[in-house]
Amino acid sequence: MMRIIGILVLSLFLLEGCARESRSFRLDPPIAASLNAVAPMPNRIGGAPPDTDTVLGQPYVTNAYNLNQGKQLYTWFNCKGCHADGGGVTGPAFLDGWWRYGAQAVSVFISIRDGRPHGMPAFGNHLTTEQIWQLTGYVRTIGAYSAKTAAPSRNDEMQSRPSENRAPATVAVPSDEWPAAPSR
């Protein structure tokens, strides 16, 4: 009898597995406005994220729904046209983890919102603040060095790189020496 009760009590803990990530569909207008108020450094590289973002618990880094929306926007707004699937074509690559204007979210946000020299257009008039943050969050997962706990869903089409929730594939460091011939 005690064993059954014990099993029942322990199985209550399984209910925790039913908890679902909460999705925010609608930002209150003042919150959206405050998320737009980033404070970049004078050279527009790096800077302080909005306080609201910190207070909300960085929803564009930790929330899988937001990352997924960002991934959708990446396709819909033809980021692929220049950056490809993260590999880069006319635009710089994201996969290598090297950021021309720094890896900070604020830099990426400003790049998308206001554009950058040498061809990056400004999307401030084409996307809402929330969407720019979602895109920022997603773009920063592409070249991540370590796997994240929150990730967008997998691609339906063939992928040219490991999916975003995986750590990057380890690359064999090219060696000067030829590998030893297999012994017979």
Partner: peptide, 16 residues
């Protein structure tokens, strides 16, 4: 004015 209140979760954002 507010697509996310009328049909939450749809892909139309609230444009200011």
């Amino acid at each position: 004015a507010d697509p996310q209140t009328l049909k939450p979760g749809n892909n139309m954002p609230r444009v200011t």
